[in-house]
Amino acid sequence: MREPPYPTVLKPYGRALVELAREREEIVCLSGDLTRQCEVDLFQEQLPERFIHTGMAEQNMVSVAGALARRGFLPFVHSFGVFTTRRPYDQIVNSIASARLPVRLVGFMPGLSSPGGPSHQAIDDIALMRAVPHMTVVDVADAVETRAALRALVDVPGPVYLRLKRGEIPVIFDEPHSFALERAQVLSEGGDVALIACGMMLPAALNAAAALRGAGISVGVVNVPVLKPIDAATLLRVATQVRCLVSAENHLVTGGLGSAVAEVLATAGIGRPLRRVGVQDTFAEGAKSAPHLFRKYGLSTADIVAAAWSALGRDGPPPTVGEVVADAGEYAPV
């Protein structure tokens, strides 16, 4: 695994989808007017006969995708996360999930990564998609995982929601990266606290682990790219080895990773304190940049460190976090 600041790449998803679609003729690409932003301008250029532009009409787009899947196509539906989940929710349920159709809903610009205000911030997409029967929910952390996840999810028999960062995508993992839809990844083991992260919060969790270790704390880090079905066995194994846990997600703490971890622990009767770092019960306003919002709404490295500190019952101020400076084209967590 690399150390921050991470190098970034452009359009890892768009490239991987074209590559996959050349091998799999049944793949069709639907776009709802955010073609370049969703990296599928590459698909539009290279495989135009399988590119369907439905305009900004997500309800129709999702129901059309369901019908195409009924006729043997493998539709990938693209927009920002808010528009692939919130807006056509009824259509996802009734045109896709109720028939367990293999439609892949791809939502870009997760959580607070958007400067577009609450209307563009998918802070509830994981919760919404977790609540849909048969839906597989994936939130990847970097470009390597994006490619690996795409290969892994293409043959899932039912619907899948894939949550992707927009723009410059960090490269965190070395290749080959061991990725399986069934498995959470234990990146490091520790006996005091486990940091459980997904998607864009993985770099912050790794950063927080380093800061905590500097203060003599034994920290484990688990990456959970698949929120549903969640790898309960791995989470339980990790939970029994530590005194407390902190979940970190670029999403509301309601219905997402933190909730999923709490369900796993409670069901198994594992009584460990759990702190959930993420968007609390609020909308995020005042956005010029994602880093500002991550700091303002408690999604920074320092927030994870403070949560762990509190869960461990430590006195005094939590260890300070050194800022990672990212040059142009690099990515560092807040």
């Binding site: 369907i52 309800q59 129709n60 999702v62 129901s63 059309v64 995708a65 369901g66 019908a67 195409l68 009924r70 006729r71 043997g72 196509f73 009824d90 259509q91 009734n94 045109s95």
Partner: peptide
């Protein structure tokens, strides 16, 4: 309100 989109998908297929 969903059916016409379904028919559209079939016709497109």
């Amino acid at each position: 309100g969903l059916g016409l989109s379904g028919g559209v998908g079939f016709a497109l297929a």
